[in-house]
Structure formats: structure tokens, C-alpha cells
């Protein structure tokens, strides 16, 4: 059993065979993992980081773009609101003006009509009074003639009566 006789434990002994195999194994592991594990993993992780970074940048750009767009749209909406308000204001003002104008015209028309009818009434009144006067003169002359038994239907008499009537009227 010479192979087993060395099964002893010494914490600080260095076994050249173990050193040799450690070097061999570690080197092998280093080379194989370098080529088949670390290289692909590092490349993949870097690629992913780059992609994430790019995506973040892109999304930031998109966000900015969207914000700008939103701003321009809200500006547009604001200006449209403004415009609409102006239009409404103008329309209201126009309507007000129109109303006022129509009212004024109507009032004027009404005044004209009123005046005219007043005039008409006045004229009719004057005419009626004159007719009444003339009629009353005629009647009174006829009566007077009848009373006096003579024709007073004369133009001269007629004038006298009318003159007297005028006097009467002016004295009133």
C-alpha cells in the first residue's frame, strides 16, 4: 500500500505535483472559458448595454419630440381658442350693432309714421274745421237770408262773416 501511505494532512506542505496540476487546470480553464464563455458573455452584455443605452436615448428623443409636438398642438389649440373667442366677440358686436341699427331705423320709421299721421290728422282737422266754418257760414248766411228775406248769399257778405269769424278766432 505505498500509494495510500501518504494520506496525511500537513497544512503548510507544498506538493509539486499539485502545483503542476493546478497550473495546468487553471490555464486550461482560463483559455477555454476565455474563448467560449467570457468572450460571448461580455460581448452580449456590452451589446445589450449599448442597446439599452441607445433605446433610452431614442426614447428620450422621442419623448422630447412628443413634448414639442404636444406644445405646438396646445399652442395651436390656444390660438384657435383665441381666434374663436375673437370671432364670437366680433359676431356678438356685429349682432349688437345690427340690432341697434335695426332698432334705430325702426324707431326712426315709427317716428316718421307718427309724425306723418299727426300731420295728416292735423291737416284733416284743419280741413274739417274749415269745412265746418264754411258750412256754418253757409248755414248762417242761409239762416240770415231767411230771416232777412233777402239774398245774402252774396260774395261780399260772405267775406264779412268770414272776417268776423277770423276776428273771433284770433280773440280766442
Amino acid at each position: 500500500m505505498p500509494l495510500l501511505a501518504e494520506g496525511s494532512f500537513n497544512l503548510l506542505s507544498v506538493d509539486p505535483g499539485l502545483v503542476f496540476w493546478t497550473v495546468v487546470t487553471f490555464t486550461l480553464v482560463l483559455l477555454v472559458l476565455w474563448r467560449y464563455a467570457w468572450k460571448p458573455i461580455i460581448e452580449a452584455l456590452d451589446a445589450r448595454n449599448d442597446k439599452i443605452e441607445g433605446d433610452l436615448k431614442k426614447s428620450e428623443d422621442l419623448r422630447k419630440e412628443a413634448e414639442d409636438l404636444l406644445k405646438s398642438y396646445s399652442d395651436k389649440i390656444d390660438s384657435a381658442k383665441h381666434e374663436v373667442n375673437g370671432m364670437l366677440e366680433k359676431a356678438r358686436k356685429d349682432a349688437e350693432d345690427l340690432r341697434n341699427k335695426i332698432l334705430q331705423t325702426a324707431q326712426e320709421d315709427a317716428t316718421i309714421v307718427k309724425d306723418r299721421s299727426k300731420n295728416d290728422i292735423e291737416q284733416a282737422k284743419v280741413k274739417a274745421i274749415r269745412e265746418i266754418q264754411e258750412l256754418s257760414v253757409d248755414i248762417s248766411l242761409k239762416l240770415l237770408g231767411n230771416v232777412l228775406n233777402q239774398d245774402v248769399n252774396d260774395e261780399e257778405h260772405r267775406k264779412i262773416v268770414l272776417r268776423e269769424l277770423e276776428k273771433l278766432k284770433s280773440s280766442n
Binding site: V32, L33, Y36, A37, W38, P40, A44, L45, K51
Partner: peptide, 11 residues
Amino acid sequence: IPAARSISRNA
């Protein structure tokens, strides 16, 4: 190695 494969396949 399989881990590296699967990581690099769909990074």
C-alpha cells in the same frame, strides 16, 4: 459555456 451560449444567442 451553455450559459454563455444562451446569453449571446438572444442578448
